[in-house]
Nucleic acid binder design. Structure first.
Lengths: 140, 140
DNA sequence: TTGCGTGCAAAGGTTTTGCATGGCA
DNA sequence: TGCCATGCAAAACCTTTGCACGCAA
């Protein structure tokens, strides 16, 4: 069920997501922001448009550990993991999703497979923790 | 808000979870099972008791990628991580949660902190992939 | 004009909260 | 007896679905 029409709602939604790369947004946050900007979009439309964007590979969808619902995040093609293997680190404080291109992931995957017979799925695996900015903020 | 009393509901719930180690259960599944066994427990109580068990470290809580709600899983201490750092590997095929005591995790955590400023939370981080048994079954 | 997109209302789930009752210690 | 635990009902959320209308192509 891919998108075939260009509509105002779709354009505004994609523009907003693209304006905050590396940051996941809930549907509620998106609707609130749109309303404040005077570009109100119905909640149903937001869900349906996001579904399409996920299917088209423009947006990623994650579910937070808490109960706040799913978060959607623009996939920045210029600054993101088009590489076969990369890290996804999720900050538990600010909610930011960090993409790391790093060989360490390859080491981990190799180790898991060779020593434990476990074949890692890098797309679904997310490292949880506290990012550098938040750590600095917390430590004052 | 830790548990202070021993109640029938708490005992039955914990016994059930402990009887299916390595397998996550939704609240709905738990309630259905209890009803079938003649040990009905109110949904509210299941939620509140699970919250306490999570807080006490008896049970882990995960949220699935789909919208089916959270799953709760007993932490098997005899076959699990009493060590400060350990792997949690979740098989995407059989759903088993595998605990690995392994120094590799220490390397990853150190690397993330030193090179990326990210402090890893080993408790909440889960590696997704395919376990050795399932891989053998798939290839067999 | 055609058919997808939109949005309101309503429904379906999961999870939480209020409140009176039950039960452990 | 003093609290905590329980569970019903209701509410709060998030998400999906039905349906009539709007709008891009």
């Amino acid at each position: 069920m891919k998108s075939e029409y260009r509509t105002r709602q779709r354009e505004e939604l994609l523009r907003y997501l693209a304006s905050v790369p590396g940051h996941g947004l809930t549907v509620s946050e998106i609707c609130t922001h749109m309303k404040e900007q005077g570009y109100s979009i119905g909640t149903t439309t937001v869900y349906r448009t996001l579904d399409k964007l996920v299917e088209e590979g423009e947006v990623n969808r994650y579910v937070a550990q808490d109960n706040a619902g799913a978060v959607y995040e623009y996939i920045d093609k210029s600054n993101s993991c088009s590489q076969p293997v990369c890290f996804h680190c999720k900050c538990e404080r600010c909610g930011r999703l960090i993409h790391l291109k790093c060989d360490e992931m390859v080491h981990v995957a190799n180790h898991l497979e060779e020593h434990h017979g476990f074949v890692l799925d890098p797309v679904r695996t997310v490292f949880y923790g506290i990012c550098g900015d938040c750590r600095a903020a917390l430590e004052g």
